[in-house]
Design a protein around this nucleic acid. Structure first.
Lengths: 331, 331
DNA sequence: CTGAAAGCGCTAACAC
DNA sequence: GTGTTAGCGCTTTCAG
């Protein structure tokens, strides 16, 4: 039922090697042979065996692995989309995994991935277990770390500074006259990047002489509910806050909903700021002040950097993809 | 640098075969041998080569492919999450692709996937190109089609009826006293499932004697913007509508935002209904009337059905995972 | 409980 | 332009 190179070779009256060359679109055969081989392959319904190809010649692997924090993240969905489109266009296949913000889950996934002898790996974040780094270094696999910039990446990095995002937003709130700002986070301290934004935010506020009034970092997933209840919690502790910066836009929108439910006016009574740039932020219920993150571009750049490295091209160690603070109507 | 079974065998003073058995946790070796082999493998930093394993014994493949319509879809992000968690737990690796609602893109992806000799495939939707179906049938690969129920699946199916979702919502609107309902869709007719919901909706309204007043099916991606502008378009044509059913919750929320911007009262002036059950729907700005779709459960069920089939267990051809209409405050 | 032999399908390297 | 040889690392099968 399954034809292989040998079957085609026999039917076309040539050798396996010639068939292989034709099918891979190389050179070293006549036009005549080519058409004959192609026809036979077609007729036999030949399906190449990449397992065998990649096994026999490891550099023939077109498998790329990508690990995201959570598959349910809207932002990372767009990053994945960028990666997938670029990779598909370039002839690669994508294997995915989720680390759930745990370096040991990431390591477990990387171990599995590496055993498939992929062409390269894309990881999210700068924090990895020593085992992961070690393994990746030992196997000398091309690696792109995305999302956050690393001072010294394992191999390559594509992203931006979360610390700067937070600092920029802190400055923005100060400029808007806010003096008692709070923060609502999520995922406890597991999300190192969210923590970096908080750090930057805190630093900017402190430097302006109006230090962070309060912060509530929840254990939950960073969604609308968490934003809603985080806002409630924060306000119950500090009713005098005049602005709140959220882990992301979903949470900010949840916080906005809470304000609406409580009859708090935004931005008069309290300012709200998010992060991420989700589509809803620009519509609902008023344009949210947030930071636009070029998710798809990051994915695309990461995939292209990886493939460039594979083709031997020179690739910068760090690619900065800038974010942009977009003032809305909420602060 | 890279150790293989032979290296371990030599260092442990046994044969390759014994090492293979130990490493795969089988039986047929003494405890003594086991510990010795394990220690050597550890010391040598052995990384198994699954390429070789799957190549040498095709049924040893633990690669599963999954194709979703779009990687940026919030709902499918949750399905993917369900699939990924189940598959990881069961020791499988996940390869993904997106078909962008085009059967030929799906076929191209399936062809690539099949050449990696995976253990099984999960596809989204009931519509596939003849080439895809043919290929899958010929290779006799376990296949799970998810999302929509198919009268006769290629192999197995996990999902629910989109037609019924639409009909149920149509009935709900009628019961709420709505008499001039409209529909806002997206992705043109490319999203067959959205079209099925429209069909069911239309049928239910017609049967109740209050046929669909108007429908606007946009070409855009089904997001907040599309909902906003779709609502605007629909109302400019039919200012007398008393309810609108949207392709999904994002769009419904966009439509809601438009109403708010125009000063239309919801549900007094006009009713709004969505589909999908996204988290924001239950918060913002009022609880949205929508249909809850058990996304993660579908993913989990699909993965488990696939693995059950692989282990030779009997698996039902069709698994129904019911949705639930949740009345909110918007109609 | 352990080992030897054969082979999976392909490609690199070299010969013609 | 085309063919031959060898081998990738593992598992299956069979023998002990």
């Amino acid at each position: 039922m399954k034809a292989n190179l040998e079957d085609i070779a026999r039917a076309a009256g040539v050798s396996k090697m010639t068939v292989s060359r034709v099918l891979r679109g190389g050179s070293g055969f006549s036009d005549d042979t080519r058409t004959r081989v192609m026809q036979v392959a077609e007729r036999l319904g030949y399906i190449p065996n990449r397992l065998a190809a990649a096994f026999g010649a490891e550099q023939a692997s077109t498998l790329v692995g990508m690990c995201v924090p959570r598959l349910t993240s809207g932002l990372f969905g767009h990053v994945l989309d960028g990666v997938d489109r670029a990779l598909t266009r370039l002839g690669f296949q994508l294997m995915i995994g989720a680390n759930n913000h745990a370096t040991d889950e990431e390591e477990a996934w990387v171990r599995q991935l590496v055993s498939w002898r992929p062409a390269g790996v894309i990881l999210s974040g700068r924090t990895h277990s020593p085992g992961t780094v070690d393994l990746l270094r030992k196997t000398a696999l091309p690696v792109v770390e995305i999302w956050d910039l690393t001072t010294s990446p394992i191999d390559m990095a594509v992203g931006f500074s979360h610390h700067d995002c937070g600092a920029e937003m802190g400055l923005h709130l100060i400029r808007r006259g806010r003096r008692r700002a709070g923060f609502v986070g999520a995922l406890a301290r597991a999300d190192v990047m969210g923590a970096a934004r908080l750090d930057g935010f805190r630093a900017a506020l402190a430097q302006a002489g109006h230090p962070l009034a309060d912060a509530e970092v929840l254990n939950d997933a960073p969604g609308f509910y968490a934003g809603y209840y985080g806002m409630e919690t924060l306000l119950s502790r500090r009713g005098d806050l005049d602005a709140v910066y959220f882990h992301n836009d979903e949470m900010a929108i949840g916080g906005l909903a809470f304000c609406q439910a409580r009859g708090l006016r935004v931005p008069e009574d309290i300012g709200i700021a998010g992060w991420g740039g989700m589509e809803a932020a620009s519509i609902l219920p008023r344009r949210l002040t947030t930071t636009l993150v070029p998710t798809t571009a990051i994915g695309k750049a990461a995939a292209e950097a990886l493939v460039a490295r594979l083709t031997g091209a020179a690739v910068p160690e760090v690619t900065v993809v800038p974010t942009r603070l977009v003032p809305g109507e909420t602060v």
